[in-house]
């Protein structure tokens, strides 16, 4: 009898308790505390991202263009790039910002060619301002995208040049005021592969960028590939002993330098990717504006490894991520158990 009473009352108490629990939302702080609230959660880290741009997809998305061959046997790669400047994009959960885009995203598509290929970019400006595409690399003056501004509302221009030199290069709009055009998002990555391909690897692109959402000439958000804290929330899955190659380009405006620090490992670094021999073996590189390079490494031990700006201000504003090495446990991707 007594036990029955206890049992029933336990059920009553428990159900009342769990009902109260349902109304509460929880979130996890940077130091791993679990907090409950009856209100809304303001959290760029752990809320399911609804942002339009998908850093997961961008990471390993390479565009080789429409391929044809000239009479002389040269490979021709045709790309169509459309510039727009009226998009409002959710660049961090809950934060909306007017991004200026190449093909609708920040960064624009990663353009990839082999050294010596003929690259043809059919550029259409559907924006409300003049825009251009300025490629870092070797090309004729008329293809530099500086003095040949392309007018708004459907202006067109075809950039045509031979891909080179080998390496990783940025492209960006070069219309004045330049800082405004770049910081709004008109940039992307241009990779030139050597004729003898590099060693097979799990390749990815990381553009280190930031957004000044309140226009005070200081960035409010930083990220690898646009969305703050994205790869911390959705760790990048890689395998032990597999060669990882990262094409990293720093496009952060306003701050003179950015950097990249890898945990639990060191990497071979090829500045600008122009030499086929690494210049240094390190876990930390410092990059100024448009400075870039290729990183190569492999992980010996499975587990979770951070990578982030060791300018910690940037990492605390979003430029931080995790490599999940060989972890078959899918639940650990939710991020809730980060810090455990």
């Amino acid at each position: 009898m007594l036990s029955a009473i206890i049992g029933v009352s336990t059920i009553i108490v428990f159900s009342a308790f769990s009902e109260a629990q349902l109304e509460q939302k929880i979130f996890v702080t940077h130091s791993g505390q679990v907090i409950q609230t009856s209100g809304d959660v303001l959290d760029p880290v752990y809320t399911a991202s609804t942002v339009e741009f998908d850093p997961e997809k961008y990471l390993r998305d390479f565009n080789y263009g429409r391929i044809s061959e000239s009479e002389s046997g040269q490979t021709i790669r045709d790309f169509t790039i459309i510039a727009e400047d009226d998009k409002i994009q959710e660049i961090s959960p809950g934060i909306f910002y007017n991004v200026w885009t190449f093909n609708g995203t920040v960064p624009g598509p990663t353009i990839r060619a082999t050294e010596g290929d003929l690259v043809r970019i059919h550029f259409i400006n559907n924006g409300s301002k003049s825009h251009t595409m300025h490629f870092h690399g070797i090309h004729p003056a008329a293809m530099d995208g500086v003095f040949e501004t392309v007018g708004p509302g459907g202006g067109q221009f075809t950039y045509e040049f031979e891909a080179g030199p080998v390496g990783v290069h940025p492209y960006h709009c070069h219309v004045m005021p330049l800082e405004e055009h770049i910081s709004h998002g008109l940039y992307g990555v241009f990779i030139v592969d050597p004729k003898i391909a590099r060693q097979q690897a799990d390749e990815m692109v990381m553009v280190l960028n930031g957004f000044d959402t309140d226009f005070d000439a200081e960035n409010n958000f930083y990220a690898a590939n646009t969305i703050p804290f994205y790869y911390q929330h959705h760790p990048i899955q890689i395998k032990t002993n597999e060669l990882i190659r990262i094409y990293v380009v720093n496009m952060v405006e306003f701050d003179p330098i950015n950097n990249f620090h890898l945990h639990g490992n060191l990497f071979q670094y090829y500045p600008t990717g122009t030499a086929l021999v690494p210049s240094t073996f390190t876990d930390m590189i410092t990059l100024s504006q448009t400075e870039r390079g290729i990183m190569e490494f492999q992980y010996k031990y499975p587990g979770k490894y951070l990578f982030h700006a060791h300018k910690v201000e940037f990492s605390e504003k979003g430029w931080v991520g995790i490599f999940l090495v060989d972890n078959p446990d899918q639940t650990s991707q939710t991020g809730i158990d980060y810090g455990n």
């Binding site: 979130f27 940077h30 609230t37 209100g39 303001l42 959290d43 880290v45 201000e313 605390e316 979003g318």
Partner: peptide, 13 residues
């Protein structure tokens, strides 16, 4: 101090 922190807002945002 200008470093992003997860937070809650009550009753709503």
């Amino acid at each position: 101090n200008d470093r992003i922190q997860p937070a809650a807002i009550e009753p709503d945002k």
